[in-house]
Amino acid sequence: MTEAATTLPAAGTLSITDPRVIRAIELVWREATLLDAKDYHAWEALYADDGIYVVPIDRDADSFDDRLNMVYDDARMRSMRVVRMTEGFAIAAVDAATTVRTVSRFVPTTVTDDEVSLKAAQILVAFKRGRHDFWAGDVDYVVRLGADAGADRLVRKVVRLIDAEGAVPAAGFLL
């Protein structure tokens, strides 16, 4: 996509071999693993208190307050969502699809000692009752680096599904 290309830093300026970027990617992969494992309590702990988790409908949107989104979670909503996914009352979560996701095509867009921003692709396959559903999207991550890797936190994750403006299945899992 052209708008993505224009926001990339010049080739050769930022590298995924940068130790700070490696830490951010490790956090992203940890998050993906926890979501596939449906370990939502551990997942929630990866987010900063001021972190947002967004699945917009408008793929071009960068601000989400004044538009309808599929998911627009601050810490309060995220916490309620974790309760919903784990307490056993939500029949969609109780009988959720099994998921496997791959996050790759990482491109760092800003790297400082405090924060790393990444662009990535996520391909997720969800299996339930004989059906495979495919969920593909671009994902933007912002990771705040802590004193050590264990203190790194997500401050922003935006999942832009390729079919965000179309009809997707209702889901009992998270992207």
Binding site: V55, D65, D66, R67, L68, N69, M70, V71, Y72, M77, M80, R81, R84, A90, I91, A92, A93, D95, V168, P169, A170, A171, G172, L174, L175
Partner: peptide, 23 residues
């Protein structure tokens, strides 16, 4: 803004209501 957040809370493919209806 408040109405959008209320709507997102229940409705849509990742709402707290719709996926349970769909199930």
């Amino acid at each position: 803004r408040e109405r959008l957040r209320i709507h997102e809370h229940f409705q849509g493919p990742f709402g707290f209501g719709t996926p349970d209806d769909a199930e």
